[in-house]
């Protein structure tokens, strides 16, 4: 049973379906070992945004205040999709990289462990 309800076959309204986001989709972004930005971030993006825009513009802007952001060696960054490591195609869109509506992309920056190594 997917809900205990007073009426039979009760169905709830899906409040966050993609069509409600005016042509965009939601993308969640998390930086491993860096918790000064206290939680992964949520942004609306055009599903056709090339993945390469993430390392090039989007992520550096989102984390602009972090002292580690300028030290990232993007060639060494490890990417995770729903927690699983993957090799993104930087020229292809986020959607074609398997990052659809409400997907979570995480990245690990080897050698960087936040403010004074505290994972902040």
């Amino acid at each position: 049973m997917s809900v205990i309800a007073a009426v039979p076959d009760y169905r709830g309204e899906m409040l966050d379906r993609q069509e409600k986001f005016h042509g965009k989709q939601l993308l969640y972004i998390g930086w491993e070992d860096h918790l000064m930005y206290c939680a992964p971030l949520c942004i609306p993006v055009d599903p056709q945004t090339p993945f390469g825009a993430l390392p090039k513009e989007i992520i550096p802007n989102l984390y602009a205040e972090h002292p580690d952001v300028g030290l990232i060696d993007w060639d060494k960054v490890q990417w995770f999709r729903s927690g699983q490591p993957f090799d993104p195609d930087f020229a292809a869109s986020v959607l074609d990289n398997g990052l659809g509506h409400k997907a979570i992309v995480r990245f690990r920056t080897p050698g960087l462990a936040g403010i004074q190594g505290s994972c902040s």
Binding site: C38, C42, E65, I115, Q116
Partner: peptide, 26 residues
Amino acid sequence: YYRPRFEFWRERQQQGKRFYNPTLPM
């Protein structure tokens, strides 16, 4: 885990650059 974060924020604030996260969280 936490003191380095707060001390960094205090330092930023003393420089007149109090940290605010401008992006909404997941």
